[in-house]
């Protein structure tokens, strides 16, 4: 079980797992040897609403950093998510076909989206945000949203 950093913005509590790194857009990457498990943050799942469908690039798809690897259809929006590292999709979370709500319930656990075989994990990981840096960026983004009237 990962440990979490936590921040409260308005009435919302957002958690950031401390055992992984993050793209500025809120895709997490958890190293597992040469492979990387990826998913979305608690902030992104709360921000986008109840997930209705998850579409992922098929196994074997080669991705560069920033390529779309998943699309989530939620009650409020259809949102694309982009690869945080270079590599090839080697596994997708097929449980989400029947239970997409797990992305909302366990974004850092059973709600993972895909596993990638990374091309150069060390180089790509160095460009991602550590949990504290992501927490700060996410908090700023949430506060910016609150200011929009």
């Amino acid at each position: 079980m990962p440990e979490y950093l936590e921040t409260t913005v308005d009435k919302f509590i957002f958690r950031v797992a401390t055992d992984r790194v993050y793209s500025p857009e809120g895709v997490w990457a958890l190293a597992e040897g040469s492979r990387v498990r990826v998913g979305i943050t608690d902030f992104l799942q709360q921000r986008n609403g109840d997930v209705a469908f998850v579409h992922m690039k098929p196994i074997g798809t080669k991705l560069a950093v920033g390529d779309e690897f998943a699309e989530l259809e939620t009650i409020k929006a259809t949102v694309s998510f982009f690869a945080p590292v270079r590599g090839t999709v080697v596994e997708v979370n097929t449980d989400l076909e029947l239970s997409p709500e797990v992305v909302n319930q366990e974004p850092y656990g059973k709600g993972w989206l895909a596993v990638m075989e990374a091309t150069d994990l060390e180089a790509d990981r160095a460009k991602l945000l550590d949990p504290q840096a992501y927490l700060s960026a996410m908090r700023s983004q949430a506060e910016e949203e609150l200011k929009k009237q």
Binding site: G49, D50, A52, I75, L98
Partner: peptide, 17 residues
């Protein structure tokens, strides 16, 4: 069963939103 589960989730979302 799959359709019923989706209907129930849609109802929960309807109440929530």
């Amino acid at each position: 069963s799959v359709v019923e589960a989706r209907v129930r989730r849609a109802l929960q979302s309807a109440q929530k939103y």
